[in-house]
Each structure stands twice: as structure tokens, then as C-alpha cells.
Computed example of a mutant assay.
Amino acid sequence: MKQLNQRTYAGFRDYVLMLLFLDTGIRCNEALGLKKKDFDYEQKIIKVPAPLAKNGHARILPLSKKTAKALNTLIKENSIFENSDFIFLSNYGDEIDPSWVRSRIKQYGIKGNITNVRVSPHTFRHTFAKLLF
């Protein structure tokens, strides 16, 4: 997480995405498919719609204050991209491909000298599960 430059849009977006992974255990495809309407800042929840969920069942994920605040800030930053309702966007306002996220997270791991451990979105999901129990 220290490898992220939060002063850039891409760095902050990646930081928020990683926070979301760690806070909820959400799958990469699910996170990238989230839209603004799926986030409730007041209740601090994310609603994963059934068509987006891997198993086809909608679910509600509670968020920490820190993650909710970061998501809210990212959504405000995204307001310059009027043509998209997605939360996680490229620097140009386009949807992000999951393979691109996997590649970026791997690069952050290399930059942070993380060795002998797989660095991927699923690793964040695994870490969430280990911390939960």
C-alpha cells in the first residue's frame, strides 16, 4: 500500500480498490462492475447486484469508515467523467479490465520488494478471509 502515489488519480483509485478488497473480500470483477448507485455512504455499505456476483446472489457488504470515505472521495473525483456510472474508471473515464488490475497489483508488489508470495486481487480476498477468522 505504501507503493501507491495517492496524489495521482490512478494511484488514489488503486488505493481505494485495494482498501475495498481488504475491507470486504470482494472479487475483482465484482468491484470493477460496481456503479455509484451500489454504494450507500450514509449506511456505509456496498450492494453487489445479483448479475454481477459470481454465484448470482445479490449481497450487501459493510464498509469501514475509512473505506466508505475513500469511495465517496473517488466518486466525487469521477464526477468529471459524466458519461460513466462506474466507480472504478481508467484515467480517461473508461471501464477497467480485470487483467489490467491484476497486472498493476503485481507491479506494486514488485516495486515493494514482495517476494515468495503471490501478489494479486485474490491475495487481498484471501487476506480478508484470514483476518476475519
Rank of each mutant, 00 (worst) to 15 (best):
F39E: 07
C28W: 00
G25R: 02
D40G: 06
I45Q: 02
L17M: 15
K106P: 08
S84D: 06
K54R: 11
Y41I: 10
D94K: 15
T24A: 01
I110G: 05
L71P: 00
N83R: 04
D97V: 03
N91S: 09
P49W: 14
E82Y: 06
R7E: 15
K66M: 11
P121I: 00
K65H: 13
K2M: 12
L52N: 08
A31G: 03
Y108H: 11
F124S: 05
G33V: 01
H126Q: 13
M1S: 11
W100P: 00
I75N: 02
I80A: 00
D14T: 08
N5D: 15
M18H: 04
G56Q: 11
H57A: 13
L22F: 15
R27F: 06
E30G: 02
R102K: 07
I80M: 01
Q6C: 15
C28M: 07
T115S: 04
H122A: 08
S99A: 11
F12M: 13
R104G: 13
E95V: 09
L34I: 06
D94N: 14
P49M: 11
T73Q: 08
I105Y: 01
G25D: 00
F21A: 02
I80R: 11
R27H: 06
A10D: 14
A31P: 00
I26K: 03
F86N: 09
S84K: 04
H122C: 03
T73D: 04
E42T: 13
A70E: 06
E30C: 06
Y92T: 15
N116G: 04
I96W: 06
N116L: 12
Y108S: 12
K37E: 15
S90V: 08
R118T: 11
Y15R: 14
I110K: 09
R102N: 13
S103V: 06
A50L: 07
K35F: 05
I45T: 12
R125G: 01
D23L: 03
T67N: 03
N83D: 14
Y9F: 15
V16A: 12
F12I: 12
T67P: 00
F88D: 07
R102C: 13
N72H: 10
S99L: 13
N29L: 12
N78T: 05
F21H: 02
A68D: 07
E77C: 00
L32M: 12
S84F: 01
V48H: 06
L61A: 03
L34T: 10
I110Y: 01
I87Q: 05
D23H: 04
K44R: 15
